[in-house]
Computed example of a mutant assay.
Amino acid sequence: MRVFFDRELDTVATFWRIYRRDGVALAFTSHDRDLTFGGIRHMAAPGMVPAAIRLTAELANDSAEVQGALNHASIRAVDLAAGLFDEAAIEIGAVDWSDLGHHTLYTGQIGRIEDDQSQFVAELKSNKSLLEQDLVPRTSPTCRAEFCGHGCGLSAARFSSVQALAAIDLDANRVRFAGLDSEAHVDGRMRFMAGPQTGLAFGIIDAQDGWLVLDRPLVAGTLPGTRAQLREGCDHTLGTCSSRFGNATNFRGEPFLPGNDLLARYGQP
């Protein structure tokens, strides 16, 4: 393996690859010209640099961040605002620009992104952050299972449909689909199948007169007629699970447990 920085003057540049959840892959290098290696063309972006990368043998998350000016055609403020880079997978490494020998130093996901309209700073989360997930279930009056996911047992295909967008309201951050039972889709999700936010998952937080209010910003460019995949929602209560879905046997919650304030309650006659 190529050893970097083992000499006084080295032909080394940094590179980073971004794999967005909508299927788009972007690659950049700090070199002053494009480099192609590993079957990927890395575009020259000298203004984008990774900050210090901390790698340890401990279980704690390795820290890193990348920052740069919003002047590259592939990373635009409107795309950052639309959430296209949220939770994207990322690789950072070093490459010898003379013979294209390279080595990946850091892998993880993009976390929090800060944007001041002139430059952006993206926090990076290493793969060790997965070890911080709490896998021990906690008691809850509502169902802990994801709707149509593991533990729920219901079929996602049964409660999913593909609809054509009838109208979009950017100011109120909502969309409308003709003939759709909007109330049944509260707490559900939606994905556009075309347009600038293709593949991005939107949570549906409310229904208003046939409109679906979404949990993340919409951007201009998605036209009426665009197809979207929708899935109904569930409020995770036992009443809904039993009466609407007939799935109480798979309810993953404890709706009848007394609360934490049981000892502080006054006795009732």
Rank of each mutant, 00 (worst) to 15 (best):
R2I: 15
F4S: 11
F4Q: 12
E8T: 12
E8F: 11
D10R: 11
T11M: 07
T11A: 13
A13D: 07
W16L: 14
W16P: 01
R21I: 05
G23E: 02
R33C: 10
A45D: 06
A52Q: 08
L59A: 15
A69W: 08
L70N: 02
R76T: 15
A81K: 13
L84C: 11
F85H: 10
A89K: 12
G93V: 01
W97R: 09
G101C: 05
Y106P: 07
Y106K: 12
G108E: 01
I110Y: 01
D116F: 12
Q117D: 09
F120H: 03
V121N: 13
E123I: 15
S126Y: 07
Q133S: 10
V136D: 11
P137F: 08
C143Q: 08
G151R: 06
C152I: 03
G153P: 08
S155K: 10
A156L: 04
S160W: 04
D169N: 06
N173F: 03
R174M: 13
R176P: 07
F177N: 06
A178T: 15
D181P: 05
D181K: 06
H185C: 12
R191T: 08
M193D: 14
T198F: 07
T198P: 02
D206Q: 14
D206F: 12
D209E: 08
W211N: 00
R216V: 00
V219C: 09
L223G: 00
R227N: 14
L230C: 06
E232N: 04
C234W: 04
H236S: 05
S242P: 00
S243W: 01
N247I: 01
T249P: 00
F251G: 02
R252C: 11
G253L: 07
L257R: 15
L257P: 00
G259L: 05
D261M: 11
L263S: 09
L263F: 14
R265D: 06
